[in-house]
Write a protein that binds this DNA or RNA. Structure first.
Lengths: 212, 212
DNA sequence: CAGGTTTTTGACCAGACAGTCAATAACGTA
DNA sequence: TACGTTATTGACTGTCTGGTCAAAAACCTG
C-alpha cells in the first residue's frame, strides 16, 4: 500500500559514486548529488541518511567492483597466472592514464579519513587486504606451477602489487603519460621474472617521455 | 619606518603545512590556520592572499623538502648507488607506517585538484618529475658501475620508484603495518637485483602479516 | 473508490566559512 | 618626539551548505 519509490537504489549509488570519484567527499555538495541522481534532497536523506552515509555506500560499491575486476582478471585460466597479472597491470596502466579526473573512492576515503577507526579508513584497509588476498591467490598458483621460486613471499608480493597500483593511479592523476605508466607496470612485473629488461622496451607504445 | 612583521614567513608556512598535511586543503578551516600559525586572519591574508595561496606555498615547501630528502639520501657516496636506494626505500617504509595522520601535500594536492592545468596538479607533476630525475641520476650511476644491466631503462625505473613510494604512503595511511610495508619495499627493490628472495625474508622485522 | 503508508516536493534554517573593513598599534626615521 | 608606513586586531558579512519540516502526492489493497 505504501507509495513506491521512483528510483532504484543501486542506480542512485552509482551516480553518487561518479560524483564522489570526481570531487571527493568534502568537495561534493549535496546539490551535486541531487543533480546527478535526480532525487530530491529529502529522498536522498530518507533512503541513505546523509552525504557521508551515501559516500560509504558508494565506497562499498567501489570496493566490490575493484575486487571483482581483479578477481576476474586474475581468475580466468586462459593464461598462466603470471601472464594474467601482467595483463592486468598493463590494463591498469591504460586505465590510470585516461584523461577523466576520476580517483578511486578507496584512495579518496583514505586521504579524507580523519582517524584509523574512521570507516573512511577501515573500509579501504579491508579492501586493500581483500585485494591483496586476490593477488596472493594468483601468485600462489604461480608458485605451485614453478613460475615463482619456492621461497617467494607471496603475501608481501601481493601487497606490493596493491601498492604499485595505487602509485600508478596517483601518477596518472598527475598527468604522467600512458607510455611511462606502461613502462612502470612492466618494471613492476620484473620482480616476478628476475631480470628481463627487453620486455619493458618492446611494450612501451608511444615513447618513454611524458606528453607535454 | 614601517611597522615590522611579528612573524617569520617560513615558520608560518611550516605551521600551515602541518595543518594541511593533516586536514587537506578543503577540510582545513581558516581558523585552524590562524590557531596553528598564531597570526590573525587579516595578517595571513596580507602576507599570502588566502587559503589556497597559502596551501600553494606549503606545497612548494613540501616539494622542496621531499626533493632535498631524496637527493641527500641518494647523493652521499658512503655506499653504492643501489645500496643507497635500498636504504632510502626502507626508511620510507618506516616513515609511512608511523602513526601520525599526515599525508604529503603532493598527494593531497593531486587528489584535491580540479583540472590538469590546476596548480594543484601541475606542481605535483613537476615535483614527481623532479623526483624521478633524482632517482634516475642515482640509477644511472649504478648502471655505469655495472650494478645494473646496460640495457636497463633508467628513466622508467625512476618513475617506478616514485610510484611505489606513493603507493606505500597510501598503504601506510590505511594502517598497513610496518612489517608489510618493509616487505613491500624490499620486493620493490628486487627489480634492481634480479631474483634474490632471501633478503625480503631476513629483513622483515615483525612478521609478514598486518597487526589486527 | 477510500484509507493508510511512504515518498516526494520545495521552502526553510541555523551554522560555518572565506574573505573584508575600519580602526588601532607599532615601529623607524627625520 | 612627531609622522608616515605597514602590521595587527576584532568585529562584520554575504554566501553556501548540510540538514529539516510540513504539506501534498502516489500507490496498493481491501
Amino acid at each position: 500500500m505504501p507509495r513506491p519509490r521512483k528510483f532504484v537504489e543501486s542506480e542512485v549509488v552509482s551516480s553518487a559514486r561518479e560524483v564522489f570519484a570526481v570531487h571527493g567527499l568534502a568537495a561534493a555538495t549535496l546539490d551535486d548529488l541531487v543533480r546527478a541522481t535526480g532525487l530530491g534532497k529529502q529522498s536522498l536523506y530518507n533512503a541513505f541518511g546523509g552525504k557521508r552515509e551515501l559516500f560509504l555506500r558508494a565506497l562499498s560499491e567501489d570496493r566490490e567492483e575493484a575486487t571483482r575486476a581483479v578477481s576476474e582478471a586474475l581468475g580466468h585460466d586462459d593464461a598462466s597466472p603470471l601472464e594474467r597479472i601482467r595483463g592486468h597491470m598493463l590494463l591498469m596502466a591504460i586505465e590510470f592514464s585516461s584523461s577523466d579526473r576520476r580517483v578511486s573512492l578507496t584512495t579518496r576515503a583514505l586521504v579524507e579519513s580523519t582517524g584509523e577507526d574512521d570507516p573512511l579508513s577501515t573500509t579501504p584497509k579491508a579492501g586493500i587486504e581483500q585485494l591483496a588476498g586476490t593477488y596472493a591467490q594468483c601468485l600462489e598458483h604461480a608458485r605451485e606451477n614453478g613460475d615463482l621460486p619456492a621461497d617467494a613471499n607471496v603475501q608481501s608480493l601481493a601487497f606490493y602489487f596493491v601498492a604499485v597500483t595505487r602509485g600508478m593511479e596517483l601518477l596518472g592523476r598527475a598527468g604522467v603519460g600512458r607510455s611511462v605508466l606502461t613502462a612502470v607496470a612492466l618494471d613492476a612485473l620484473r620482480v616476478l621474472h628476475g631480470r628481463r629488461m627487453e620486455e619493458a622496451v618492446e611494450e612501451a607504445d608511444d615513447g618513454p617521455s611524458t606528453r607535454e
